Computed example of a mutant assay.
Amino acid sequence: MSFIAPEIRDSAIARVNPVAKLIVALTVSLALLLSIDVVSAAVALALESVLLAWSGLSARQFWHRTLPVWVAAPLAGLTTVLYGEDSGAVIWQLGWISVTEGSLTLGLAIALRVLAIGLPGIVLFATTDPTDLADGLGQVFRLPARFVLGGLAGLRLVGLGIQDWRSLGLARRARGVADDGGIRRLFGQAFALLVISVRRGSKLATAMEAKGFGSSSPRTWARASRFGAAEIAVIAVGVAVAAVAIGVAVAAGSWNFVLA
């Protein structure tokens, strides 16, 4: 079972080793976290917008998957504008809430950073199959097999958890216990899902242990995780995006190193 939609699976970025995509996401995120300024985030977001056209996601898939980021970014910016550190001229004030030129700039920088970090991360991992990622972490990064396979098994259960939640809701409606008391119904259904998840996790752990997944012996892998020219090119593009964003911000004089 693949977690990637068929139309995305054949895209160029979906065929890249997930380890390379992970390195790109971490590189861009680290570069943007080193400073809080508008220029570097805006430049990175502009470059990413051009590159995301090659992700293979349709417009509907893109907006559907990234909707939480589009909601979180303005909220983070608004919170910073209203309650962030004041500096510069006061634009608006109501009691202990004030909006200044500095808080507006800081809020815009935070909102752009949330978008510049969140959007490529979601898109990159939307084109990544968990099994391919586990193969890459185990063979390329040489992470412990028990850790990698345990994480993969847990991730595979997420889809089952979503199906269980829907089944629980339908079953409760069929029994007539989901007609009123929305808050109580939510907590009751969540507790039932927790019980089901614990039971399934225990059975899965026992089955994996019985099949030798808990062994400390060297492990073989069913599929080879290859790391070649395409992966190096993707990493180079990610490093270039981070470098250009930092370089433009430094040249514009807006670079504000957070650790300074």
Rank of each mutant, 00 (worst) to 15 (best):
V28D: 04
S215C: 05
R60L: 01
T66N: 01
L75C: 13
G176P: 10
A20I: 03
A243R: 08
G84I: 02
F3Q: 06
T66Q: 02
L186Q: 07
R184C: 08
G56C: 03
R146W: 05
I97P: 05
V99F: 08
R142E: 02
F147D: 07
G118E: 03
L67K: 07
V71N: 06
V158M: 14
K203M: 13
Q61E: 06
W255K: 05
A20F: 01
L137N: 11
V38W: 04
A210Y: 05
T220D: 05
A260D: 12
L194P: 10
A46T: 08
D129F: 04
G118T: 00
G181R: 08
L124H: 03
G154C: 02
R172Q: 15
L26F: 15
L45C: 05
G84S: 00
Q93I: 11
S197L: 08
I36E: 02
V16F: 03
R223M: 13
A243E: 13
L157M: 02
L67I: 00
R175P: 08
S103D: 09
V198E: 14
V195N: 01
A89E: 15
M1H: 09
T79H: 14
T206S: 13
P68G: 07
A249Q: 01
K21Y: 01
G228M: 13
V71F: 09
G150Y: 14
A153F: 13
A207E: 12
I36M: 12
I117F: 03
S216G: 11
R15F: 06
V158Y: 13
D135K: 06
A249H: 03
L133S: 12
G201R: 14
L259C: 10
V195R: 09
V258A: 09
L193G: 05
K21R: 14
V198Q: 14
S216N: 14
T105S: 15
I117S: 05
S87F: 12
G181Q: 14
R9K: 11
L193N: 06
A53W: 01
V195I: 11
R184D: 09
V258E: 13
E7V: 11
G188D: 08
Q93V: 08
